[in-house]
């Protein structure tokens, strides 16, 4: 009987998640330039990806982005959630402002920041110029392009992570903090020795989620930089998209790259989870 209740959900999950995933896995061993005719090529697609001269820079870009994104997002979300949690005045407004970018379409986010970061007419550089800071080529210089993409990525998701951490913070028993205060603990000591350890399970979720988001980042980057300048912000998902959907389309290659991405995310998630559990056990 319980299986009947979960059947609708499993049917949807199976149709839209499991079947496409299995189909993608199957296509990764095929060659197809039109999506209708397939030819089995064994592991040729995987070999082609690993020997593709652009894959090294894509891997480097993805690693740079994911590591920076996860660290900055986690630290900043922790900081912001602790600050917002301590606010008593206009608490709701601060949370709403923090969460606002999450509600924007990623495509719109990319387009907005594309305008803001324009080297000559963008408001950011106009402000920098007024302050004597020059006109950095955010969308023209490869290194600055990556910085811009990391910044926008963090800006988009930080509200989401902060809200999760806020919920975690509110789950901490206030009497523990009051007792610490009565024992003479400073605010920093309470944060370091009580709040952060108690928030560890929630922080682990943030690390896992931001790792997944980092690897999956594509939409806002595509509208912000298109993967440029000179491929400096082309991450693994755009690599998959370009192989699968840009002329000449190569569905086998795209699917093989998708399988590789799945394995990477799976490995990182498992690693995070295992490390987190091990520390908890200690």
């Amino acid at each position: 009987m319980p299986y009947v209740f979960i059947l609708p959900n499993m049917a949807i999950f199976g149709t839209f998640i499991i079947y496409p995933a299995l189909r993608g896995f199957w296509i990764s061993f095929q060659e197809s330039s039109d999506g209708r005719n397939f030819k089995y090529v064994g592991t040729a697609n995987f070999k082609a990806i690993l020997t593709d001269p652009t894959i090294a820079s894509v891997a480097r870009n993805t690693a740079t982005y994911v590591i920076s994104y996860v660290i900055i997002s986690t630290v900043l979300a922790l900081t912001l959630s602790i600050i917002v949690n301590q606010q008593t005045f206009l608490k709701g407004m601060y949370r709403a402002i923090l969460f606002l970018p999450v509600m924007l379409s990623p495509v719109v986010v990319g387009l907005i920041w594309n305008q803001v970061l324009d080297r000559k007419v963008g408001p950011l550089n106009q402000l920098l110029q007024a302050l004597g800071g020059g006109s950095p080529g955010w969308l023209v210089e490869p290194k600055l392009g990556m910085i811009a993409v990391i910044f926008v990525g963090v800006w988009v998701h930080i509200g989401f992570y902060s809200i999760i951490l806020l919920a975690g913070l509110q789950g901490i028993d206030k009497s523990v903090l009051e007792a610490a205060a009565m024992d003479g603990a400073t605010r920093w000591q309470s944060t370091r020795l009580i709040i952060l350890p108690l928030l560890k399970p929630t922080t682990l979720i943030i690390v896992i989620l931001s790792t997944i988001h980092g690897f999956q980042s594509f939409d806002f980057i595509y509208t912000l930089t298109g993967g440029g300048p000179l491929g400096a912000t082309t991450l693994i998902v755009q690599y998959i998209y370009d192989r699968a959907f840009q002329t000449p389309i190569q569905y086998g290659l795209g699917s093989a790259a998708g399988v590789i991405l799945f394995l990477i995310i799976f490995a990182f998630t498992a690693l995070n989870f295992l490390v987190g559990r091990k520390k908890e056990a200690v």
């Binding site: 594309n114 324009d118 080297r119 000559k120 080529g137 969308l139 023209v140 392009g145 595509y222 930089t225 298109g226 993967g227 440029g228 300048p229 000179l230 491929g231 912000t233 082309t234 370009d242 840009q246």
Partner: peptide, 10 residues
Amino acid sequence: PRDLWVGSGN
């Protein structure tokens, strides 16, 4: 406009 050309990827 170099931003428009270089900054729009491929």
